Measured scan of single mutants.
Amino acid sequence: MQRVNMIMAESPGLITICLLGYLLSAECTVFLDHENANKILNRPKRYNSGKLEEFVQGNLERECMEEKCSFEEAREVFENTERTTEFWKQYVDGDQCESNPCLNGGSCKDDINSYECWCPFGFEGKNCELDVTCNIKNGRCEQFCKNSADNKVVCSCTEGYRLAENQKSCEPAVPFPCGRVSVSQTSKLTRAETVFPDVDYVNSTEAETILDNITQSTQSFNDFTRVVGGEDAKPGQFPWQVVLNGKVDAFCGGSIVNEKWIVTAAHCVETGVKITVVAGEHNIEETEHTEQKRNVIRIIPHHNYNAAINKYNHDIALLELDEPLVLNSYVTPICIADKEYTNIFLKFGSGYVSGWGRVFHKGRSALVLQYLRVPLVDRATCLRSTKFTIYNNMFCAGFHEGGRDSCQGDSGGPHVTEVEGTSFLTGIISWGEECAMKGKYGIYTKVSRYVNWIKEKTKLT
């Protein structure tokens, strides 16, 4: 034993070699072989497995989906700052455009905790909710729209109204504003409101030439003092309507412009014939205590009207009353817009006519005020429907199939267009061939041609 100890002390290297040989010859039971080890760690190889990531292109799944990435790591994937920024906006807080917040056709661009709407022409605001041009839906104005110097929408209202708090709607500024039905039992019968379409306001006024200088022999019209197929109006439903009495009662109609003036057809009036105007009328054979009678003290036909040349060209006249009318729910003026808007309103496509005229061709006159909704007829169809001249200051309205029309005794009465609950004068009943005849239409004086003249002559002093 002493000898062994001496050998170990003198030859430590020998001992180490012996131990190493023993270990190498022993069977290893701690580690699995290569094949079995792979069965336990069965993990798919990654895209760049075996390579240094710093030297390969980034992978979106590896960089940002398996674990949260930084902007720089995302930049490695896209290799483009702009594309990385677009991805980053949604990656950080989701897609803010998912709810489609942009209105009126706006395009949404996502941002971090926010979004941006790219608005089409005519709109602005956070969600493109603000109209900035009158060309689109009248700028959301209830009545009139004008573009300011910086191309912003400025709404306005006709006389007797003021802008509401929203700067879009119009509200009454006087007790009985024009064009409004205020009798409670008839307010439910107000005709369907007309909503502004998209309009090209630059070209809204037709490029028409008034044929002022045409000389033409007097034409022989049949029954051209021209509501057939209409309905009984309720008291106060058309408070701007008046009836004219002269040699015979209810020979023509008219509309209240203001307390002192009536507008009617020029062919209705004769110099030297006494005319009485009755406002607030409903049943011409009954006294309903809503009527107001006034005498006409002055007749002003349009300066281009000449019955000797043509009885229905420039067929418009103004009547001055001896005493002002007292405005109330049964006696209310009709609204008159400017030339541009009167023309736009007419193009809405349908209007209402009213009167006490004959209820059928050569038949009896109506006792109760009649009204009828009539569609506008395109000019080409209008011209083809008659052998008589249709001037540019006239328009056609009615039904091709016949059966409904204005008729004798309705002449001078109103053709009105309702705009968001307020009625505007767009025409004056003038003439036609018979009444409600198939293929024939009622012919009306186009008020847009005469609004400046009306307003100039009827100013209240």
Rank of each mutant, 00 (worst) to 15 (best):
P175R: 12
Q241K: 05
D110R: 08
Y391Q: 13
V368Q: 15
I7Y: 10
L32G: 15
I262A: 03
Y22C: 11
V4S: 14
Q90L: 07
E61M: 07
E86N: 10
G272F: 06
S423F: 14
P120W: 02
G125D: 00
W261L: 01
F360W: 14
W88D: 12
S430P: 03
K446V: 02
T422H: 03
T225A: 08
E10K: 15
G253A: 14
G50I: 10
L367P: 14
K440T: 13
N59V: 04
C170I: 01
C145Y: 02
D200V: 13
A9I: 08
R384L: 09
A233K: 05
V257Q: 00
C117A: 00
S49R: 08
S11L: 12
K459F: 07
T422V: 09
G432K: 10
L460I: 07
E142T: 08
G280K: 02
E288A: 06
V277M: 03
G106F: 00
S25F: 14
E193C: 05
K339L: 05
V77A: 11
D405T: 15
V199C: 06
S148Q: 12
F196Q: 08
G246P: 05
S430D: 02
V326H: 11
D322I: 02
R294C: 00
I334K: 00
G355R: 14
M65Q: 12
W118K: 01
C18G: 05
P239N: 02
H267E: 02
Y47P: 12
E61C: 03
P177H: 02
T332Y: 04
I214Y: 14
E171L: 12
S70L: 09
C108F: 01
S350L: 14
L367I: 11
S187W: 08
I336V: 10
C119I: 00
N343Y: 03
L130R: 15
S169L: 05
E340G: 10
G442C: 14
N203I: 09
L346K: 03
F176H: 10
V242Y: 00
N42D: 15
T276N: 09
C119H: 00
N36G: 11
S49W: 08
A265N: 03
L24K: 03
M8H: 13
V263A: 04
K51H: 12
D131E: 07
E61F: 05
E82V: 09
V278H: 05
A366M: 08
V92A: 15
V447Y: 01
E53C: 04
G427Q: 00
F224I: 11
S156W: 11
R191V: 15
I284Q: 07
T381G: 04
I262H: 01
D338L: 03
L60I: 14
S70K: 12
E231N: 14
P101A: 03
E281A: 12
G442S: 10
N36A: 10
A397R: 02
N135H: 13
E61D: 08
N138T: 05
Y312L: 07
D131F: 12
Y115F: 09
E61R: 08
C396T: 01
T81G: 11
L52Y: 08
L318I: 04
I112T: 13
Q408N: 13
S107Y: 05
C178E: 01
R75K: 15
N213K: 05
C108I: 01
R3T: 07
I40P: 15
A164G: 10
L325S: 00
R75M: 08
P177S: 05
W88H: 15
V377T: 05
L327K: 03
